[in-house]
């Protein structure tokens, strides 16, 4: 493994990210709108049976999860563009192992979506969606760990998909059958405890559920599963996806 190569791949992602100011704003506008309009709009007419917090507080971890999911998967899938139209070839002819390349890409993209997630978390704190009282060094640290795991896992999912596709034609399918169900079934916006059994059962297979549930446990003190379980499932999924994406990436072009 070449750390120098991993670092330069990561650095490139950072430079591109911080240069495109409009992209940062674009990335944040969607979750911001969800948080403000859905959160504030619905919190007056929605109450979740048996819990003491309102809908605005309920969706904050969901919106963070959503931000991480979308930006991670899309930046992973963007490898298709690099594959079809250019820069990836420059990377692939370099005397660097495919494993280092895929790790550099995963770390770079994951860092960017992590930054997006942190910005949304700050916005949520500022508008009172996450109460300052719930914050401690420990809870912030735990939230960061959850966020990093979500980023690494879904960037890897994106790269794994991109390794198998050669163009963007399958993109709509991926949106409809993978990204949207993952998002809705994660309990980001819907309290799944009160959902029908079948829905709750399917949702158990949604890895993002454990991320959102963990974040909810951290910020609200209420979660479907114990935080240790959330953390364990998410970490396991994350490792599996990193291995899968490295494997598929290595086999690309053969």
């Amino acid at each position: 493994m070449e750390f120098n190569a991993i670092y330069i791949m990561w650095l490139r992602e950072m430079k591109r990210f911080f240069r495109a100011k409009s992209r940062i704003i674009g990335n944040l506008s969607m979750p911001f709108i969800w948080l403000v309009i859905m959160g504030i709009g619905l919190s007056s007419s929605f109450s979740i049976p048996g819990v003491k917090f309102d809908y605005l507080a309920f969706i904050a971890p969901g919106v963070i999860g959503m931000t991480l999911l979308f930006s991670s998967i899309f930046s992973g899938i963007s490898v298709i563009w690099e594959k079809q139209f250019g820069f990836l070839k420059e990377i692939l002819v370099a005397p660097v192992s495919r494993t280092s390349i895929v790790l550099g890409k995963i770390f770079g993209s994951a860092t960017i979506s992590f930054i997006n997630g942190v910005l949304i978390m700050i916005i949520a704190i500022l508008i009172g969606s996450i109460s300052i009282a719930s914050l401690s060094v420990f809870s912030i640290l735990l939230a960061i760990i959850f966020m990093i795991l979500i980023c690494l896992a879904f960037v890897s999912v994106g790269i794994a998909i991109a390794s198998r596709l050669n163009n963007m034609e399958g993109f709509q399918m991926i949106m409809s059958f993978l990204v949207m169900p993952t998002f809705f079934l994660s309990g980001a916006f819907i309290p799944l405890q009160n959902a029908p059994l079948w829905m709750g059962t399917i949702a158990m297979f949604d890895p993002l559920l454990y991320g959102v549930d963990g974040l909810r446990g951290v910020f609200l003190g209420v979660s479907q599963f114990p935080i240790a379980i959330d953390l364990g499932v998410l970490a396991g999924f994350c490792v599996a996806m990193i291995l899968l994406s490295s494997y598929l990436f290595r086999r690309m072009g053969e």
Partner: peptide, 10 residues
């Protein structure tokens, strides 16, 4: 390469 392969945001 035949196709451009520079990162044009760098």
């Amino acid at each position: 390469f035949q196709d451009p392969s520079l990162d044009d945001e760098l």
